[in-house]
């Protein structure tokens, strides 16, 4: 879950994180696949948001990754997971992700 406590989404963010959008097979173990990879490869994950799409066949996972220097390795390792169908680097989605973080902070 987001570790940053950002209340104002318009506030300028330091860009030392990357935003990734994954399309994954939707089954009960897939979140474990993603989170487990980050733990065992010693990559830092700052935020994760997951939701089923495509009538539940696949899920969309947004990741905020604190590994700009290792990003290439993060993406290559994610690519190897059989359940990961697509990976996009989405810097354009940063405002949206910040909004999501702010919303979660508001929910409390």
């Amino acid at each position: 879950m987001p570790a940053t406590d950002t209340h104002n989404p318009s506030e300028a963010q330091p860009v030392n994180t990357a935003i990734l959008r994954l399309t994954v097979n939707n089954h009960p173990g897939v979140m474990l696949q993603i989170c487990g990879l980050f733990v065992r490869r010693n990559f830092n994950l700052e935020g994760i948001f997951c939701s089923a799409v495509d009538q539940g066949v696949t899920s969309c996972i947004w990741l905020k990754v604190d590994e700009t220097d290792k990003l290439d390795q993060v993406i290559k390792q994610l690519t190897k997971l059989e359940d990961v169908l697509a990976i996009e680097e989405r810097p354009d989605a940063r405002p949206g992700v910040s909004e999501m973080e702010a919303m979660m902070a508001r929910i409390g």
Partner: peptide, 14 residues
Amino acid sequence: TYGMSMPITKHNYL
């Protein structure tokens, strides 16, 4: 078994 074998297999299924 699924959870335990995940980090040591190329892929796994339940």
